[in-house]
Design a protein around this nucleic acid. Structure first.
Lengths: 215, 215
DNA sequence: AATTAAATTTAGACAAATCTAAAAATAGTT
DNA sequence: AACTATTTTTAGATTTGTCTAAATTTAATT
């Protein structure tokens, strides 16, 4: 399994975990910042190996074996992110790029020992679930802040956008995983929300609210 | 800097740290399990980048920049080995292969934080010195067990051969770094040594004695 | 100094992963 | 149903790192 193959599987997995149908060649190319023709080449290769279902012009989807492989890469990625934050004091906006490299290290023992060192975490620093050795994981039954009514309150359990820019915005306004958040009011005009975050009050735009998960 | 370039620099560094002259194309090829013609190709490429001195048929040596780069890779390798043993409970004969992968991860912050987590170790699990951020390191002034006279005693501070097979031999006979060793006698015929290792007595062949460092 | 052996380099080929440009298939619209 | 726009695939080229086989240079030996 080459690094490139792993990256394709991971991308197909992420694009597919929404609707469950088969994925566009173009969507994969865009996500991976490559060309559709390269995606076609790789689709053939992965189909040969039994990791994706692929028929010309019919889109691409993961087979069971493909899902299993993708989950093991996601597991590694999220365990490494957790390690970087918990053990090496990285900020949550600094871990993605390094974890993209570390996820390709080949050693089952390494990842099992890492899991143990971290005390078998269920969620990564962004609140995303960490698949177990056999691919099982529990998604929080969480709601997007933007979809909750005025008066609702809960605990921030995750973010939808994990970009550095967004995470730094959250840091600046002291929004982090575990913080209690209550919706004090909603602006009808633009959907911006008036929030109580811990002991403070803040107003956030609709765009922000669309990327914060509450439970 | 590609992974392949890094591996060449590291190999040239290891082969060169003995005598200091320039290294054979063949020796590099053999060490890297590749062909001399591939070494020539890479020599040209690395010379282009100012990392090695290379003239046709004259052998290859690292420039100052090449040494600096090689030391940073050795630093990473040995810090990762230390991490695997100290934090993840790997045995000292299991770390090399994984560290060969981890040493190529690109993140200065990662390696500095790892150094900090490990409390800035000076030596790796095999007793080899870990270069600092600026390439400085202290070699133990150690002696090969095979070159010491009968009656000599000291502490085991390192091994010359880090192969899995050799390290497992040492484990079996409870020889490890930090153990006090005394030479009780030497067999004139084959050079085998009668040793006191901690509280026990053992006889080791000349070949074994050639791969254990004492201080 | 000539010859042989060993080491090294060159030339040409290959595989993996990518790209561009052109061709083909699908989907949407009139 | 025909046309158009979009998506997707094919064909051929490129890059990196490697290889084999042949040619060249250096070193060793007579």
């Amino acid at each position: 399994m080459t690094r490139s193959e792993e990256n394709y599987l991971k991308t197909i997995f992420h694009l597919g975990s929404g609707d469950e149908g088969s994925i566009n060649t173009n969507a994969i190319a865009e996500q991976m910042e490559t060309k559709p023709s390269s995606v076609t080449d790789m689709a053939k290769k992965l189909a040969e190996k039994g990791l994706v279902n692929y028929k010309k012009y019919q889109g691409i989807s993961l087979t069971d074996a493909g899902v299993k492989t993708a989950l093991s890469i996601v597991r590694k990625h999220r365990l490494w992110e957790t390690f970087l934050v918990e053990k090496l004091d990285f900020a949550w906006d600094e871990v993605h790029e390094v974890a993209e490299q570390l996820e390709h290290i080949k050693s089952e023992k390494l990842i099992d020992k890492l899991d143990q060192l971290l005390k078998f975490p269920k969620y990564d620093p962004h609140g995303d679930p960490i698949p177990g050795k056999n691919g099982e994981f529990q998604e929080h039954n969480k709601d997007l802040l933007s979809e909750l009514p005025v008066g609702a309150h809960g605990i921030c359990v995750g973010v939808k956008d994990s970009s550095s820019a967004f995470l730094q915005y959250l840091d600046k306004h002291e929004i982090s995983i575990g913080k209690p958040i209550q919706i004090l009011g909603k602006e009808a005009f633009d959907g911006s929300l008036h929030l109580k975050i811990g002991e403070r009050e803040h107003t956030v735009s609709h765009q922000i609210a669309c990327n914060i998960y509450l439970k």
